[in-house]
Design a protein around this nucleic acid. Sequence first.
DNA 1: GCCAACGTTGGC
DNA 2: GCCAACGTTGGC
Length: 151
Amino acid sequence: MAKWLVKTEPSECGIEDFARAPRQSIPWDGVRNYQARNFLREMKEGDEVFIYHSSCKHIGVAGIVEVVKSAYPDPTQFDERSPYHDPKSAPDSPRWDAVDLKYVRTLPRLIPLDELKPLPGLENLPLVRKGNRLSVMPVSESEWQIILGQA
DNA sequence: GCCAACGTTGGC
DNA sequence: GCCAACGTTGGC
Protein backbone atom coordinates (compact mmCIF):
# COMPACT_ATOMS: atom_id res chain seq x y z
CA MET A 1 0.00 0.00 0.00
CA ALA A 2 1.70 3.16 -1.19
CA LYS A 3 1.67 6.47 0.63
CA TRP A 4 1.47 9.99 -0.69
CA LEU A 5 1.33 13.66 0.14
CA VAL A 6 -0.73 16.33 -1.56
CA LYS A 7 -0.48 20.08 -1.13
CA THR A 8 -3.55 22.21 -0.83
CA GLU A 9 -4.55 25.67 0.21
CA PRO A 10 -6.87 25.17 3.18
CA SER A 11 -8.96 28.09 1.99
CA GLU A 12 -9.74 25.95 -1.08
CA CYS A 13 -9.91 22.49 0.42
CA GLY A 14 -8.22 21.61 3.67
CA ILE A 15 -8.44 18.76 6.15
CA GLU A 16 -11.38 20.53 7.79
CA ASP A 17 -13.37 20.14 4.60
CA PHE A 18 -12.79 16.40 4.71
CA ALA A 19 -13.58 16.23 8.42
CA ARG A 20 -16.87 18.06 7.92
CA ALA A 21 -18.28 15.17 5.91
CA PRO A 22 -16.09 12.26 6.92
CA ARG A 23 -17.93 9.59 4.99
CA GLN A 24 -18.10 11.57 1.79
CA SER A 25 -15.29 11.57 -0.75
CA ILE A 26 -13.93 14.72 -2.34
CA PRO A 27 -12.63 14.75 -5.93
CA TRP A 28 -9.00 15.78 -6.04
CA ASP A 29 -9.10 17.67 -9.32
CA GLY A 30 -7.38 20.64 -10.88
CA VAL A 31 -3.90 19.15 -10.88
CA ARG A 32 -2.20 20.68 -13.92
CA ASN A 33 1.35 19.49 -13.72
CA TYR A 34 2.53 16.41 -15.55
CA GLN A 35 4.73 14.98 -12.85
CA ALA A 36 2.00 15.41 -10.25
CA ARG A 37 -0.54 13.89 -12.62
CA ASN A 38 1.64 10.86 -13.17
CA PHE A 39 1.73 10.28 -9.44
CA LEU A 40 -2.06 10.66 -9.26
CA ARG A 41 -2.29 7.89 -11.83
CA GLU A 42 -0.27 5.58 -9.61
CA MET A 43 -2.58 5.99 -6.64
CA LYS A 44 -4.57 2.91 -5.67
CA GLU A 45 -7.68 2.49 -3.59
CA GLY A 46 -6.74 2.27 0.05
CA ASP A 47 -3.52 4.27 -0.28
CA GLU A 48 -3.09 6.83 2.49
CA VAL A 49 -2.35 10.46 1.74
CA PHE A 50 -1.01 13.26 3.91
CA ILE A 51 -2.87 16.54 3.51
CA TYR A 52 -0.40 19.43 3.54
CA HIS A 53 -1.62 22.98 4.00
CA SER A 54 0.28 25.49 1.89
CA SER A 55 0.10 29.23 1.20
CA CYS A 56 -1.60 29.99 4.48
CA LYS A 57 -0.86 31.03 8.03
CA HIS A 58 -0.04 27.60 9.43
CA ILE A 59 1.77 25.63 6.77
CA GLY A 60 2.42 21.98 7.42
CA VAL A 61 1.01 18.46 7.48
CA ALA A 62 -2.52 18.58 8.85
CA GLY A 63 -4.12 15.18 8.41
CA ILE A 64 -4.60 11.94 6.55
CA VAL A 65 -7.06 10.94 3.85
CA GLU A 66 -7.33 7.81 1.75
CA VAL A 67 -7.85 7.05 -1.90
CA VAL A 68 -11.35 5.71 -2.50
CA LYS A 69 -11.31 5.96 -6.30
CA SER A 70 -8.21 5.70 -8.46
CA ALA A 71 -7.46 7.99 -11.38
CA TYR A 72 -10.17 8.98 -13.85
CA PRO A 73 -10.39 11.86 -16.31
CA ASP A 74 -10.70 15.17 -14.46
CA PRO A 75 -14.04 16.63 -15.58
CA THR A 76 -12.96 20.19 -14.84
CA GLN A 77 -10.60 20.16 -17.81
CA PHE A 78 -13.62 20.15 -20.15
CA ASP A 79 -15.68 22.67 -18.19
CA GLU A 80 -15.35 26.07 -19.79
CA ARG A 81 -16.51 27.77 -16.63
CA SER A 82 -13.97 26.04 -14.45
CA PRO A 83 -10.71 27.79 -13.57
CA TYR A 84 -9.11 24.45 -14.43
CA HIS A 85 -10.53 24.37 -17.93
CA ASP A 86 -7.93 23.22 -20.45
CA PRO A 87 -8.94 24.01 -24.03
CA LYS A 88 -6.06 21.91 -25.32
CA SER A 89 -7.30 18.72 -23.74
CA ALA A 90 -9.30 16.55 -26.14
CA PRO A 91 -12.25 14.55 -24.76
CA ASP A 92 -11.07 11.41 -26.54
CA SER A 93 -7.65 11.66 -24.91
CA PRO A 94 -8.00 13.52 -21.64
CA ARG A 95 -4.81 15.14 -20.47
CA TRP A 96 -5.59 15.42 -16.75
CA ASP A 97 -6.80 12.99 -14.13
CA ALA A 98 -8.43 13.23 -10.73
CA VAL A 99 -8.81 10.80 -7.82
CA ASP A 100 -11.39 10.69 -5.04
CA LEU A 101 -10.19 11.12 -1.46
CA LYS A 102 -11.93 10.51 1.84
CA TYR A 103 -11.24 11.60 5.39
CA VAL A 104 -9.24 9.36 7.69
CA ARG A 105 -8.15 11.60 10.52
CA THR A 106 -6.85 14.97 11.55
CA LEU A 107 -3.43 14.86 13.22
CA PRO A 108 -3.43 15.77 16.92
CA ARG A 109 -1.52 18.85 15.90
CA LEU A 110 -0.40 20.39 12.65
CA ILE A 111 3.24 19.58 11.96
CA PRO A 112 4.83 22.77 10.67
CA LEU A 113 7.14 22.73 7.67
CA ASP A 114 9.85 24.26 9.85
CA GLU A 115 9.90 21.14 12.00
CA LEU A 116 9.99 18.77 9.07
CA LYS A 117 12.89 20.45 7.29
CA PRO A 118 15.70 19.43 9.67
CA LEU A 119 14.49 15.89 10.33
CA PRO A 120 16.97 13.20 9.33
CA GLY A 121 15.46 10.87 6.78
CA LEU A 122 13.38 13.46 4.95
CA GLU A 123 16.21 14.83 2.79
CA ASN A 124 14.76 13.22 -0.32
CA LEU A 125 11.22 14.37 0.23
CA PRO A 126 10.51 17.09 -2.37
CA LEU A 127 8.30 18.89 0.13
CA VAL A 128 11.19 20.09 2.27
CA ARG A 129 13.40 21.12 -0.61
CA LYS A 130 13.67 24.77 -1.40
CA GLY A 131 11.73 25.93 -4.40
CA ASN A 132 9.99 22.63 -4.95
CA ARG A 133 6.55 23.01 -6.44
CA LEU A 134 5.49 19.42 -6.87
CA SER A 135 1.96 19.21 -5.46
CA VAL A 136 1.53 15.43 -5.45
CA MET A 137 4.43 13.28 -4.29
CA PRO A 138 5.13 9.78 -3.05
CA VAL A 139 6.11 9.31 0.59
CA SER A 140 8.16 6.27 1.54
CA GLU A 141 7.13 4.15 4.49
CA SER A 142 10.04 5.43 6.57
CA GLU A 143 9.32 9.06 5.67
CA TRP A 144 5.69 8.48 6.62
CA GLN A 145 6.67 7.16 10.03
CA ILE A 146 9.12 10.01 10.64
CA ILE A 147 6.45 12.58 9.87
CA LEU A 148 3.80 10.80 11.91
CA GLY A 149 6.23 10.62 14.81
CA GLN A 150 6.16 14.40 15.09
CA ALA A 151 2.40 14.59 15.49
C1' DG B 1 3.26 41.91 -1.06
C1' DC B 2 7.73 40.26 -2.52
C1' DC B 3 10.42 37.42 -5.09
C1' DA B 4 13.17 32.99 -5.94
C1' DA B 5 12.54 28.90 -8.11
C1' DC B 6 10.40 26.37 -11.20
C1' DG B 7 7.50 24.49 -15.33
C1' DT B 8 5.63 25.74 -19.71
C1' DT B 9 5.33 28.10 -23.99
C1' DG B 10 6.64 29.55 -28.34
C1' DG B 11 9.91 31.79 -31.57
C1' DC B 12 13.74 30.63 -33.99
C1' DG C 1 16.00 21.22 -29.98
C1' DC C 2 17.40 25.41 -27.64
C1' DC C 3 16.42 28.86 -24.58
C1' DA C 4 14.36 33.46 -23.33
C1' DA C 5 10.18 35.09 -21.71
C1' DC C 6 6.44 34.34 -19.14
C1' DG C 7 3.16 32.76 -15.56
C1' DT C 8 2.69 30.28 -11.30
C1' DT C 9 3.85 28.35 -6.86
C1' DG C 10 4.56 28.95 -2.31
C1' DG C 11 7.59 30.37 1.60
C1' DC C 12 8.69 34.38 3.88
